[in-house]
Design a protein around this nucleic acid. Sequence first.
RNA 1: AGGCGUAUAGCUCAGUUGGUUAGAGCGCAGCUCUGAUAAAGCUGAGGUCGGUGGUUCGAGUCCACCUACGCCUACCA
Length: 1202
Amino acid sequence: MFQKVSDSNFVQGEHSALSFWSSRDVFAKLRKKNANKAKWSFLDGPITANNPMGVHHAWGRTYKDAFQRYFAMTGHELRYQNGFDCQGLWVEVEVEKELGLGTKNAIHEFGIDKFVNQCKRRVLKFAARQTEQSQRLGYWMEWDEPAELRKLSAAVGSSEEIEYTNARGEKVKDVPHQIVAKLGNPDWGGSYFTFSTENNETIWTFLKKCFDRKKIYRGHDVMPWSGRSGSAYSQMEIADGRKLAVHRSLFVRFPLLDRENENLLIWTTTPWTLTSNVAAAVNPELDYAKIQSKRDGQIYYFAKENLNYKRLEKESKEGFGRPEWSWPDGVPKLKTLAQIFKEKGGFEELGTIKGAEMVGWKYQGPFDELPAQSQKGGYPFDERVREKTAVECHLVVDGGRDSKGSAHVVAGEGTGIVHTAPGCGDVDHKIGLELGIVGIAPLGEDGRYQEGFGEFTGREAIDPTTADLVIQKLEEKGLLVASEKYPHIYPHCWRTGDELVFRLVDEWFINMDWREEIKDVTRQIDWLPESIDGQNREIEWLTNMRDWMISKKRFWGLALPIWINPEDPTDFEVIGSLAELKEKCVEGWDGFEGNTPHRPWIDHVKIKSSTTGATLSRIEDVGNPWLDAGITPFSTMGYNTHRDMWEKWYPADLVTECFPGQFRNWFYSMLSLSTMMRYDETDDPKEKQPFKTLLGHRLVMNEEGQPMHKSDGTAIWFEEAAEQIGVDTLRWLYLAQNPASDLRFGTRHPEQPVTLETPEGPISETKEGAPTCKVTSGPADEVRRQYLIPLWNSYAFFVNYARLDEFDPSAEKIPYAERQEIDRWILSRLQSLIGLAHESFQAYDTSRFVNAAGQFIDDLSNWYIRRNRRRFWRSKDANDADKTAAYQTLHEVMVTLSQLLAPVVPFLAERIYQNLVFGRDLLDTLSSEEDSSDWPESVHLCDYPTVNEDLLDEDLNARTALAQAVVRLGHQVRDQSNLRVRQPLAEIRVACSTAAQRDAIEQLASVIQDELNVKTITTVDNLDGIVQYAYKPNLKTLGPKYGKLLGMLRKDLPNLAPEILAPLRSGSNVSIEMGGETIELEPDDVLVSTEQSSEWGTADDSGVQVAISTKLSPELIEEGMARDFVRHVQQLRKDADLEIENRIRIQYRSDASEIKQMLNIWSEYISAETLADSIESRQEIADGKSVSVGEFATVLSICLAN
RNA sequence: AGGCGUAUAGCUCAGUUGGUUAGAGCGCAGCUCUGAUAAAGCUGAGGUCGGUGGUUCGAGUCCACCUACGCCUACCA
């Protein structure tokens, strides 16, 4: 027997479903059911285990879960492995904060081992947290027990053995380091952690392959550098950290030697680099102006074009290309050079000179007194220029051209003469190398000046007082021409927000000259959604990217397996596995053994060079974290250790991730790593693809479409949304969204703290101690109101009447052929939905299915159930086969719908299924005994429904759709004629353009009549006599035939006498004369529409025209009044909370004789409809309700009959 | 700066191979229906389809240019 259904209690129902699944091990049963079936391989992109999950993570995770559930229900074996991203600077930054360590030195003092252990602990802690949140989302994965992860987190660093219960429920005993190292291995199950030894070692395999192909090199480059982090930043990282900054920019003169009173004018936005000036670059093609300042007689050279060039003119009006990058307050518009010189007493133009003529001029540098400027071989010393000093290199040089052939030096923002410091700028560095001049690299790893820079030594480059000092010195020397505030986009550390500096570094790179191979692989993959053209975006990145900087001078991350000869940096080796390392090890293995291959332990190991025999030490750098995530198609599937397993699961059928950024991050790293891993195994790019299909989705925004920020309290924590909005609602919202558009989710109200009822009890703050706040979401409310509540109400309607009637779902089925057409219709509609569900999921297009399901729920609720209510209300009668047919139909629809929706709204689907199949209310306390039923124990253990072709009747679907269209037209006519639906009308006439339509209308005549409350319905060939026909040419068919005549046809054809064109409506051709030509018109060539006439209201749509008689007879008016009367009494019953079966007495008062007259005829009907024993007229009625019956005021009241 | 994309109702967006009167949802307003429903249905705004020019019998749709916005890339000293 079904359990009575009342309030939906969505959130509470989700909690109940969670405990139902866990108490019955439903997920384990699902995996058992699908073991050894066809594989569907999903690869999870690792989530950074560094913070709790927000609603922005839940979108992608909902996709992942929904697809996994669909493919499980269609009988596939899955891996169900979640991934955690564990290594890298982002973890270090948080741990530094936790421990109050501000610099790299502080970390060294604290101890790298302790620091690294703390990083591991943090990752495990947040992995536990995200696991719990994901479980609340209903995300079915083979999770490690959060409590076990926390236990492990606490034990990291200890050398005591502990017991760990893995995801398969097996106990393992080992020291914490060793357990951590093996997390996620195929024997234990559970989430993969990118810090696992297998993951790191598989990256070694990759790097070894790169080394074998001679793609690994150490590069000296000027790269963006963070002094605080003490590390260089790769191209991928800089992209995330560009910000608008205001710097002091300076115009400085460089006095020319051998040309008295003549100066180069240069400009810079990084004053600190002037200490390291070596040369001045010009463009030989450019014209340079020679002007003389009137005040001091000095002569200046700079690009002619720049004299009156309005610098940053556009930016001062429009900003720098992003909404948040508008021109900063308090920064004045920039002056032109002409203006600057005018303000200094005016100037005189002396002439023009080509840049080429200036090349070779010598000048005096701005800081030639610094010892570094006079150091032979530059600073640091460079063998190739051992005899030169920077001061000796102070020449005007040709700036040259970049790889695309455009000049490095151009007129415009600066002066056309570029202060060149090969130790402080990327392009400068390249120019320096080309010209063989020395470089001065002033900054140490901490971003401060090193020895040899006088007063500057020890100062931080990005400290504003450093610029002050530069300015002060220049002023003292009389070299400063002007300074100004200059806003520009400048790279910043993407985590700390510190400005980066450009510093000469030596880092390790992968030469990416095999990019074409990667592009070939990229082209094998399906990139979804199509509209964002992911393939091209990826190809574009692959075309433009530079070599991959894989090293970072930090502590917590992949130990790059590069061992190098300290005496000879060209003598290095890349190690491909721990076994190889052990074999080559000559000392230090003791310091490493028993630990994970991380710093500091791995650094003890020294090996012997296989080529030179020298002792090699590991470079101290750690790896770029995108290697960690990029290797997962190999490491998690056992490429090195479980090859047969890898063969089965590679490549993944699907990966899905939030796409902005990932084209240069995860997608890129997977594609590159996979291409390299497979280069020696196959030449077929298809065999190298790490995944077959990629589904990208955009970002979660607030309700206004703006990003949500953790810092201002607008970012929504997952549990805030889950417990206030409900996870089923969230999931529907995510799955219905177009993945190519940002999701405008909702709003967090940081000023309104709330207490949340979670499955573990009430909370008013998150586990991190942040208060939980009110979250509102218009889109989520709409989902609930439009889809979930109607679904629930449909279900509740069925259950509550089925209970009263003691409907037995196991009773013999009434053959479909013997059921009413409307039953067969909803079943047929259901089959269409099933077919569409399969298509959509297989095309990874959830929004198509979810929207169709929404449509279906509407049809179910607002057509099938509404139209069939009376069949369910009929008094109980065991022999009422028609009623049984209705119950059986609705039961089948509801059960199937719960299965269809199980991947979308797993909680709600389970509740509905459990009650419909087992008569079990998940909100009740449940016994855990097994059911003796043929039905699967959970909706998630069901096979996904398949289309029953016998029940699919497209004609019937179309017929009903047509009837619904006619009803809509009828309502439209009533509305326009101001005739309420309760007012019966005499007749509707329907004219159709095809026989099929006509048949359909005739078959559904009674439905249409009933819906529209009309006495008769007639199908007719035309509405002649009722309406005027209007004719218009069908341009689509006539255009190709008559071309230029179309303009005339369009104008004149509607004006022809209607009788000329009338034959077209009965299917005959008509020929007319127009513009001196004969035009043969076929019925298809003309479009017919109707125009209103009196006494009939008309409307038309898609070839169907309806006319409804609007003339009211006294009888019709009386009947309308009777319907009004019933309606008002029913409302009073509802207001009084009467039971459906209660009988009543009605009293009324009205001065209108028409009311009495109506009651003479209709009282019996009214009594029957309202279960009234009597209808009495009274002069006075206390507490009566004033209503209108027809046009007449009436006061009504009811009371219970005795 | 370069590349790509977008511009349609108050808001968010559809708009097929060029075809007549350019649609949906939300919001707003009015009306209607209702003994499953915290519902729902219908109607409405009169939208220069960002602008200009072109191709065509015909352009929201194709082409060119311009403008605005978004994204990606980039060392602009």
